[in-house]
Design a protein around this nucleic acid. Structure first.
Lengths: 191, 191
DNA sequence: CCTACCGATCGGTAGG
DNA sequence: CCTACCGATCGGTAGG
């Protein structure tokens, strides 16, 4: 990918995140770049191409992260904390893409949609395995693994709704708070 | 609202939930009703009218539920469990609308968008108050209230992604699992 | 990267 | 609820 293509992609993502993929026109994207709409087509095959690249780039980052976690000889709690930390870092360091990835993947069509769902399922499976490790170790409650994994991912993904780059919490602090919440819940431990 | 209008609304919502508001055309909606597109306009002012009614109907239901919870003399844990139960019931009993409400409200424009956000904020405030009650009672950890409330709502809302009417878990069972997870977290209590 | 342009589809209206 | 229709906008192509 050329420098210029990366530049155009970043600008496109900044526009797409505002109104969503379906409500954004190729003209909207071109306008932000001070280009003619037709010029975009020398960089991308079509509108969906931009969505495809965005979603798959993010999916690749998440895939890499979960593999990293599962290759390390940590215990389950350490693994879960690391997975959450890496996930939050990916979201916050690629906020525009993250919003599009989470919200607009449904607009993918055909085989792109299928491949995306396969990748996403693989990532969710990685989370489920961490939960399973914790159950095996006897430190996590025997909850429904799938239920727990999806609930964890949903609360982590939700941060893109309110995270601000210049906010008072950085990625690591958010990850810590979320991890504590997910591990220990709201209730005070009775001693 | 006439019986026929309710019928048309329900069909419209079933179509909108599939591809999302922005990617669905008035012709898509009309086709499912075996109507001409123009005929829809004798029931609704315009396309956004359908979105508006859907989002505000849902917001009203949630508003009513949180008021019910906060008017009752329960302790914080009971309140939170009831709020989650009512929330899950509203989601699962109005699944099409719920998906549109959660995903497509961003497509509202002008004052409708403003009013919607005001209503949503009021609902979130209701959740924050429940968390505050728990902190005051000394039974909840002193977490950031806003953080906790949003994390709770995000994991509860996520169920519309996987809930199936004929699935193995009913609304009450989902609410119980979620409540346990939110209150106690993943970690086993050390005794 | 632009000019010039295309057919298709969009949300919506007039009038019955 | 339909017929007939509108101007605007859509994603995208040809050719340079």
């Amino acid at each position: 990918m050329t420098e210029r293509k990366r530049e155009i992609l970043a600008s496109s993502q900044s526009v797409l995140k505002e109104k969503g993929y379906a409500a954004t026109s190729v003209r909207d994207i071109a306008k932000a770049l001070e280009m003619e709409p037709a010029s975009l087509y020398s960089h991308f095959k079509n509108k969906e191409d931009i969505l495809k690249i965005t979603c798959f780039d993010m999916a690749d980052k998440f895939e890499l992260a979960v593999r990293e976690v599962n290759d390390i000889y940590f215990n389950a709690e350490e693994k879960l904390r690391l997975a959450i930390k890496l996930h939050v870092e990916i979201l916050t360091q690629n906020l525009d893409s993250a919003i599009i990835f989470i919200r607009d993947w449904r607009n993918l069509t055909g085989t792109a949609l299928e491949q995306f769902l396969t990748k996403r399922n693989a990532y969710e499976k990685g989370f489920r395995e961490i939960v399973q490790t914790g159950i095996d170790e006897g430190v996590f409650n025997e909850t429904d693994k799938k239920f727990a994994a999806l609930t964890i991912l949903s609360s982590v993904n939700w941060i893109v709704e309110w995270y601000k780059v210049d906010g008072k919490l950085n990625a690591e602090q958010i990850a810590d708070k979320l991890s504590n919440f997910i591990l220990s819940g709201l209730k005070k431990e009775m001693i």
